[in-house]
C-alpha cells in the first residue's frame, strides 16, 4: 500500500490538467489464494509456498531491476541503484517505504508467489475485506489478479470472491453494454474530446464526435 498510494495520487493529479481524474481506471496487481474457508486456504498457501523457486524469483527481479542479484549474498540488503531497466520494482523495495529494508532472501520469498504484488489469502469474505481495504487506502479502482495455479486461481475467485463482492454491492451483476471503454465507464465508444489524442482528428471528425 505504501508504494501504491502516492502513485495513484500522482496519476490522478496529472489527469487534472485536462481530464476527469476519476475517468482513469487504475488496476493494482494482486494475487488471490481463496477457497471456502480461511483455514483450508491458509494450509494450501503453505503448500504453494513450498513450490516456489527462489532462483526463478530472483531471475525475474534481476530482469525487472537490471541488477544481477546472483552477485549478492542472500542476507545482503538490496540498495537502490539506477539502471536502464524498469524502475518500479526497485523503487518498491528500496524507496517506497523508508522504514522497511529488504534482504535478497526476503525479495526471493516475496516475489516467489505473485511477483512484486500483494497476496490475498483466505475465504471469499477475507479476500473481499482485503480488496475493500486496499481500495479505501490507495484509491485504486480494482485489481489485475495474477494466478498461482492456472486456471484454478481464477476459477476460485469466480466461485468464492465474486459472489461475496456482489453481496456487498461492490461488483456488477451483469456487463454494461458497448465497447470495453464504455463498460469501464467511458461516456462513449470513442476517446473523449478532452483526451490529447482527439487533437489528431480532422475538423470533420471533430464535428461528428460532437454530435
Amino acid at each position: 500500500m505504501t508504494a501504491l498510494k502516492p502513485r495513484v495520487a500522482d496519476i490522478r493529479l496529472a489527469a487534472e490538467a485536462g481530464r476527469d481524474p476519476a475517468a482513469i481506471k487504475i488496476f493494482a496487481m494482486a494475487t488471490v489464494v481463496t477457497g471456502p474457508t480461511d483455514a483450508r486456504r491458509g494450509s494450501q498457501a503453505c503448500g504453494l509456498s513450498a513450490l516456489r523457486q527462489s532462483r526463478g524469483a530472483l531471475t525475474l527481479m534481476s530482469g525487472w531491476t537490471g541488477v544481477d542479484l546472483s552477485t549478492f549474498r542472500l542476507d545482503d540488503e538490496v540498495r537502490h541503484v539506477e539502471t536502464d531497466a524498469g524502475r518500479t520494482a526497485m523503487e518498491n523495495i528500496t524507496r517506497a517505504d523508508p522504514s522497511r529494508v529488504w534482504t535478497v532472501r526476503e525479495v526471493a520469498q516475496h516475489v516467489g508467489i505473485g511477483g512484486i504484488g500483494p497476496v490475498f489469502v483466505g475465504s471469499g469474505r477475507t479476500v473481499a475485506d482485503l480488496m475493500e481495504a486496499w481500495i479505501a487506502e490507495t484509491g485504486v479502482d480494482g485489481f489485475n489478479l495474477a494466478y498461482v495455479v492456472a486456471p484454478e486461481s481464477f476459477e476460485d475467485v469466480v466461485e468464492h470472491v465474486v459472489p461475496e463482492l456482489q453481496r456487498r454491492g461492490r461488483y456488477k451483476r451483469a456487463y454494461a453494454p458497448g465497447t470495453l471503454r464504455e463498460k469501464l465507464g467511458g461516456a462513449g465508444p470513442r476517446l473523449p474530446s478532452s483526451h490529447p489524442a482527439s487533437g489528431f482528428r480532422s475538423p470533420r471528425a471533430h464535428a461528428q464526435a460532437a454530435e
Binding site: 494475487t31 516456489r52 508467489i113 511477483g115 485489481f143 489485475n144 489478479l145 495474477a146 492456472a150 465474486v162
Partner: peptide
C-alpha cells in the same frame, strides 16, 4: 462506493508471477 474492477493477469507463457509453480500437480 464504486464497483470493484477485476482483470485476470496472465501471459502467453508457462508461469507468470509465481516461478516454480508450474510444478504444481494442478497447474495447467
Amino acid at each position: 462506493p464504486n464497483e470493484i474492477l477485476l482483470n485476470a493477469f496472465s501471459m502467453n507463457a508457462v508461469g507468470h508471477q509465481s516461478p516454480g509453480l508450474w510444478r504444481h500437480p494442478r497447474d495447467r
